[in-house]
């Protein structure tokens, strides 16, 4: 009896599960191709604007493709990658410079942007005007930024000339022509344009911190540093992670400012990987090798982004200490 009842119950459970599956299958059948049609515009757009260009670059990276040497064009196998990794010192020097450029720019922009955002979050007279003035450089294009800084750095007419007149700089000193100063000259110009980005993002996030949190910290006797370290900074965590990641990618791919300000020089002193890609592909017409260099940049950024997001635990709870 007991065994029979158990078997019956088991059969009942099986039939119930089968009954429960039936409507789901029917539902899927009823939906048919509709979801795919709804998704198709997105799939087409991604294929056209992401998959095809990336696929083309992958394809050309395995080709000898030089438009002025068509008689040498054809399948190259891994030779472009081999040349890049084993026989091209400029690849390594440009990559090294790119790393130095990204780290310097992002760290300095973050620190200065954070300071400016904290100042502009306070209530003071002319705050609106100050905010507008701080954000203004972000609206200036890279080429225009270059023009402004080229004028400032001009040894005949720029600020250096005035510094020379009061004895603070040698006569005729050209910041962008000297291998010892060109890096910091370029960094300063890019800082001027990049700091407002961090200031905007951080200020927006600062304004979302509940006032009660700050007041509670004040009541507990927290000083400015303690408030910043234990209340404000944890709240800004995701904004900082996202903005630094974006800025790392943008600075890695920075072309406009460096191309127009130094054109990668003097020599190859300020040549980043994207500038080197442009030189190979556009000046030398060597699109195959340029594609291989582009793939290297793509792979580096992809792996970096994955690791950075994983290690920083982007999106995890802010975890205020209690």
């Amino acid at each position: 009896m007991g065994v029979t009842q158990t078997m019956l119950e088991a059969e009942q459970r099986v039939s119930l599960r089968a009954g429960a599956r039936e409507p789901a299958r029917r539902r899927r059948k009823r939906k048919g191709w509709v979801p795919y049609v709804m998704l198709s515009p997105l799939v087409v757009l991604i294929a056209a604007f992401v998959a095809y260009p990336v696929g083309s670059v992958v394809y050309y990276s395995f080709q000898n493709y030089n438009i002025v040497e068509p008689f040498l064009n054809g399948f190259a196998g891994w030779s472009n990658y081999s040349t890049m990794l084993r026989h091209d010192p400029l690849f390594w020097s440009s990559l090294l410079f790119t790393g130095k450029w990204v780290v310097t720019e992002v760290v300095l922009q973050l620190i200065l942007g954070m300071i400016l955002a904290l100042i502009m979050n306070e209530a003071f007279r002319w705050r609106g005007f100050t905010r507008a003035a701080v954000f203004a450089p972000w609206a200036v294009s890279g080429v225009l930024t270059t023009t402004i800084w080229l004028l400032l750095y001009d040894p005949q007419a720029g600020i250096v000339n005035y510094l020379s007149n009061i004895g603070l700089a040698p006569r005729g000193f050209a910041i962008l022509a000297d291998t010892h100063t060109v890096f910091w000259g370029a960094v300063l110009a890019e800082l001027w344009r990049g700091v407002p980005f961090f200031a905007i993002i951080i200020l927006a996030d600062l304004q979302s911190i509940p006032r009660e949190l700050i007041e509670a910290a004040n009541c507990d006797g927290a000083n400015a540093w303690t408030r910043f370290r234990w209340v404000i900074l944890p709240h800004l965590r995701d904004a900082v992670i996202l903005s630094t990641l974006l800025r790392c990618v943008w600075e890695f791919n920075n072309v406009d400012l460096l191309f127009t300000l130094t054109n990668g020089g003097p020599g190859t002193e300020t040549t980043t990987l994207p500038l080197y890609v442009a030189r190979q592909a556009i000046d030398n017409h060597n699109f195959g090798y340029g594609a291989a260099l582009t793939m290297a940049g793509f792979a580096i950024l992809f792996v970096f982004s994955m690791i950075y997001l994983k290690l920083s635990k982007f999106g995890a709870s802010t975890g205020y200490r209690t």
Partner: peptide
């Protein structure tokens, strides 16, 4: 020479290295 322009372009940054003593 189809590469004549590219050869000159590639030598330009190296001339800067001559000027700066590199």
């Amino acid at each position: 020479l189809p590469q004549y322009g590219a050869i000159q372009n590639n030598s330009d940054p190296l001339w800067q290295e001559v000027m700066t003593g590199q």
